[in-house]
Design a protein around this nucleic acid. Structure first.
Length: 414
DNA sequence: TCTGGGGTCCTAGGACCC
DNA sequence: TCTGGGGTCCTAGGACCC
């Protein structure tokens, strides 16, 4: 058996751990650049705030209900996530951390226990140790655990278990679009075939699912039948790409500013590359205008590096070349980014005849990374990345990095 | 005025090879 | 007049996830 443990409206819960005055109050967390709602407390949900709406469209609602608004604070969420995950690791020898707020726990071999009771125990301990409320869905496959987790969230006591005896009863009115792996497009197309519930999808012809959709749909159907097709990923598969992209606080029209942004993102991407001890052999650079305007425009170029590298200066040469190629003076860019591709472990990369001796440049990168780690991101940077960065994203309502930054830790008054 | 970011996987189709 | 068959690799685009 498998348990899916999912944090309840994780970002708002994390904020409330350090702002308990907002417990039972409507709270929302915004996307980068303070653009859209990405998380909402149950109270915010109850007054009709939807995930994904642009915040400027709900200003009235926010004012009227005194909704507490936070910019996103990923240092805090990342750290709180780690605390939850290490707590969960106490309850099983094998777990897959699936996302920032979810883990699959392997409960095979726990057959002697009452799994529902065990679920309650997990919930209680996570709550006590981290302050984060979680829901737990238990079943025989990942897909069914996801279904069970949905039911747990509705059930109020936070734990639910699907077994061969009760599964059908729950699938019969479980909407097909809520199944893990069924998105907007598939649910629309399934509806056209008269398939609206999880039970109907479970009983579909296997080869039809394969032919009409893909092997993923076929596996999903099998999983609904209780046959595991998606196994637990115990050691995370190696990364294949690293993206850094942001929307700008205001549109960018000059090449100089676009170069600053691209250089900033490239530096950050190269930093991530080194953290993972990888090198890249290509970089894609892209820029977009507002996708809500009629003359929406986007362009990208992919450049192959001379040799596989993790050196910021080397990767920057290509990134800026790409930037110059996609820049158009008549456009107002709203967003840009870079993607590092062709990643491989640094220790296994193909060396090149033309590559400079690695000692000195590696030492330079290590030093820069160490300084930035100690004194804060961007303490030392390449000059092309710009100093003022007037285009940098908005984050006007960010809470403190309570748990990851010495100068921002909570203060206890006597 | 204001609309997120970072990923993976699958498929189809073209280029290319012998 | 008649113009193969089998395969791999790469890429773009779509769909999905949190």
């Amino acid at each position: 058996m498998l348990a899916l443990c999912d944090c309840n409206s994780f970002y708002t819960s994390a904020e409330r751990v350090f702002a308990p005055q907002f417990i039972n109050q409507p709270v929302i967390v915004l996307s980068n650049n303070d653009g859209c709602v990405v998380a909402r407390s149950p109270e915010a949900k109850a007054i009709g705030i939807k995930i994904g709406v642009p915040v400027f469209q709900i200003q009235d609602l926010i004012y009227q209900h005194k909704v507490q608004v936070f910019s996103s604070n990923y240092s805090l969420y990342g750290d709180m996530s780690q605390r939850v995950m290490s707590t969960l690791a106490e309850f099983t020898p094998t777990l897959e951390v699936y996302s920032i707020d979810e883990s699959f726990l392997d409960l095979s071999g726990f057959g002697h226990l009452d799994l529902i009771e065990y679920g309650h125990e997990i919930r209680q301990v996570v709550r006590q140790w981290t302050g984060i409320p979680v829901s737990i869905g238990i079943s025989s496959t990942k897909t069914l655990s996801k279904v069970a987790n949905h039911l747990a969230k509705l059930s109020d006591d936070g734990v639910s278990l699907l077994n061969p005896e009760n599964t059908e009863k729950f699938l019969v009115d479980f909407p097909v679009e809520e199944i893990w792996g069924i998105g907007r497009s598939h649910s629309r197309s399934l509806a056209n075939h008269g398939i609206n519930t999880a039970l109907q999808l479970r009983d579909v012809d296997l080869s039809w699912a394969r032919k009409e959709y893909s092997v993923l749909m076929q596996r999903l159907v099998l999983e609904l039948r209780g046959q595991p097709c998606f196994s637990l990923e115990l050691n995370p598969p190696p990364k294949k790409s690293i993206t850094v992209s942001r929307s700008f606080s205001r549109a960018i029209a000059t090449l100089a500013e676009l170069r600053e942004a691209i250089a900033t993102y490239t530096s950050r991407a190269a930093e991530k590359l080194r953290q993972h001890e990888l090198t890249a052999d290509a970089i894609q650079v892209f820029a977009l205008t507002s996708r809500f305007k009629a003359d929406y425009y986007s362009d990208s170029v992919t450049l192959t590096l001379d040799y596989s590298s993790d050196n910021t200066a080397e990767i920057l040469r290509f990134a800026l070349k790409g930037c110059d190629r996609i820049y158009r003076p008549e456009l107002q860019f709203k967003k840009a980014g870079v993607i590092l591709l062709g990643l491989m472990p640094k220790s296994q990369r193909q060396l090149s005849l033309w590559e400079p001796e690695e000692g000195r440049s590696d030492a330079l990168m290590q030093t820069i990374d160490a300084i930035n780690e100690r004194f804060g991101r961007g303490t030392i940077q390449f000059a092309v990345a710009g100093l003022e960065k007037p285009w940098a994203m908005r984050q006007e309502m960010r809470s403190n990095r309570w748990t990851t930054c010495w100068s921002e830790i909570p203060v206890v008054r006597s």
